[in-house]
Amino acid sequence: MIVVACVKQVPDTTQVKTDPVTGTLIREGVPFIVNPFDSPALEEALKLKDKYGFRVVVISMGPPNTEVTLKKALALGADDAVLLSDRVFGGADTLATSKVLAEAISKLSQEDEIAAVFCGRQSIDGDTAQVGAGIATRLGYTQLTLVDQIQELDLPIKKVKVRRKLEGRHEVVETPLPALITVVREINQPRYPTVPMRLMSGDSEVKLWNNSIMELPTELIGLEGSATQVRKIFSPERTEGEILGDGENNPDEAARLLIDAMLQKDIISI
C-alpha cells in the first residue's frame, strides 16, 4: 500500500519583506523552505512506513527548484518523490492545485492501493487550508482535518481512527480508508536525516511529471483553471493599538510597560 505525503515549497516568510512603495512582497533572493506544516505530514507517513512497511510517496507541485525540497524528503526516508512541474501548472489557485495533485494521486493508485494521503493543515504563504480538502473532494476520500493523533489503523477492515484538535476540545473520529488527513504540528516531532540517507538522496531521482505525462486539459489547470486570482498583496495598516517600548533593545522596560498597561485595563491583577 502507498501512503502519500503532499509537501509545498514556500518562501521563508521570516525573510520576506514588503516593498514599501508598491506594498507587494519582495520574493527575490528569499530562500525557500519546506512548508513547516508539511514536515509533520511527511513524518506521519514515514511513521506508518516504519510500522506497516507502506511505500511512502512524496509529491509536490511547484517550479523545478522544488526538487531540493523533495530530495530532503527522500533523505528522510520517502521511497519515491514526484514533482509536478510544468509551465501550464503555474499561477494555480487552490482549486487548480488540488486538481493536479488529486490527478497525480489517482495515477499513483494505479500502481498500488492508497492507504492515506497526508497534508499539512495549511501553507504558511497562502494560509488557505483548502488544498487538502480539495484533494479529498476530487478523490472522493474522507477528509480528516486538524489531526493531532492517529489512534488506530485497522488494516484488515481498512479503518482509521484519529483525534482532531479543535478549539478547546478534541474530537475522535473513525473513517474507512483511504482517507485524506491534514495534520497539525503537535502531531509529532519530525525526524532528522542521517548522513548515509542524505548522501543516498543526493543520487536518487525525483520523478518529474509534467503535463505531457499528466495529460490534463489546460482549462482545468494553472491560471486558466483557477477560480480566484491574487490582485494585490499588502501589509494591512494598523488602525488601533500601540507598540509599547522597544522590546528588542530594552525588553525589561517593554515588559514593565506591558504589565502596567494590562493592569490598567484590568486584564491582569495583582
Binding site: 521563508d12 521570516t14 525573510q15 530562500p31 516531532q189 532528522y192 542521517t194
Partner: peptide
Amino acid sequence: MKAKFPPELLNFFENIEGRSNPWGIA
C-alpha cells in the same frame, strides 16, 4: 548515523542549516 539526539536540537540544527544562526532569525 542514527539521527538520535535530544529533541531540542532538531530546531537548532534546522535553524543553523536554513538561516545560519541558532535561533533561526532572518
